[in-house]
């Protein structure tokens, strides 16, 4: 493929011939990852650190906790609380429904051919987020959406009269589920595949019912994965800005929308408050993801 074959001793030149090169070798080897590290520093870690450090600084300089304390206003508190609520509920529902669908496809109950289209569709739907997703739901259950109109005109049910409004917390949750459920299916299916048939059979032969097997073996084995998925889905929803903005404009007071407004127009009247707001978001997603990573490591240790 490349050049003429040469005698094998040519490779020897790549070995360090003198002790001096031996000393330099580890440093030279690092050169290979320098571009990556520089990129990560400049465009990932640096900007984030700048924000986090800014959250603990005064406008004139000097360290302080003032900004964090100043976040404790009803409006900001409410924004975080609504964000956490939406993220948690959509993550929880996403986990439950995604798990049920994946379990149906993997563990029998459903024919084999269901599995592949389900996974393909999940790949598409989990990436169909942001602005167009909001449009799809507006066109369906928005004020003039397909289902809304159908219910009103053909069945005489006025969703609005029942207090349903897509541009609200439940509306946002329903919309988020469109990418939460598929994401759950994508990450829990390998875990369900990891449940070995022999475990179920061993439990059965020892007298266990299907339910006992699930309670004593399968669910404990899956538990770290399930909790980890919950954390991942939570972080996924918590950082979602585009869907929320496209769906509600800026009418809904949630953390990412508040931050968006702050970046555009300093609505909080102090740039350092913006840093603090962003840092709060990182802290929350970081906790969620740490939970995910720790739990995944634990389940992998079992299943080796």
């Amino acid at each position: 493929m490349v050049g003429r074959p040469r005698s094998p001793h040519v490779t020897d030149t790549s070995l360090p011939p003198s002790p001096r090169r031996n000393v330099l070798a580890p440093i030279l080897r690092m050169v290979g990852v320098v571009p990556f590290l520089v990129f990560a520093l400049l465009f990932l870690i640096g900007p984030t650190l700048y924000i986090v450090l800014g959250a603990f600084q005064r406008t004139g300089g000097g360290w302080t906790l003032e900004n964090i304390v100043a976040l404790n206003t009803p409006s900001v508190r409410n924004a975080y609380w609504v964000s956490i609520k939406i993220s948690f509920i959509s993550a929880l529902l996403g986990c439950l429904i995604g798990f049920a669908m994946s379990a149906g496809a993997v563990l029998g109950g459903l024919p084999k051919w269901v599995r592949s289209p389900l996974l393909t569709f999940s790949g598409v739907a989990s990436n169909f987020a942001g602005v167009p997703l909001a449009f799809a739901f507006l066109a369906t259950i928005g004020p003039a959406g397909l289902i809304t109109m159908w219910l009103r005109q053909d069945l005489g049910i006025n969703l609005r009269a029942y207090g349903f409004n897509l541009l609200s917390t439940p509306g946002l949750i329903i919309t988020y589920l469109f990418f939460q459920i598929p994401l759950m299916i994508l990450i829990i299916t390998p875990a369900l595949d990891g449940l070995r048939r022999e475990w179920r059979e061993a439990a059965m032969v020892l007298g266990a019912t299907g339910w006992q097997y699930w309670r004593m073996v399968a669910l404990p084995i899956l538990f770290p994965s399930l909790l980890g998925c919950l954390a991942l889905l939570f972080a996924n929803a918590f950082g979602a800005v585009a869907t929320a903005i496209a769906l509600t404009g800026s009418s809904l007071n949630i953390a990412p929308i508040l931050l968006y407004a702050q970046i555009r127009g300093d609505v909080l009247g102090n740039p350092h408050l913006g840093y603090a707001l962003a840092t709060g978001m990182i802290a929350i997603t970081a906790v969620a993801n740490t939970v995910y990573i720790v739990l995944r490591a634990r389940s992998e240790r079992w299943l080796r």
Binding site: R196, W199, E201, A202, M204, G207, A208, V217, I221, W302
Partner: peptide, 19 residues
Amino acid sequence: RPNQRNIGMVFQAYALFPN
């Protein structure tokens, strides 16, 4: 059913409950 037979079984791949 298998869980009513009171039979012991050992599998090729151990199949111990990992948890």
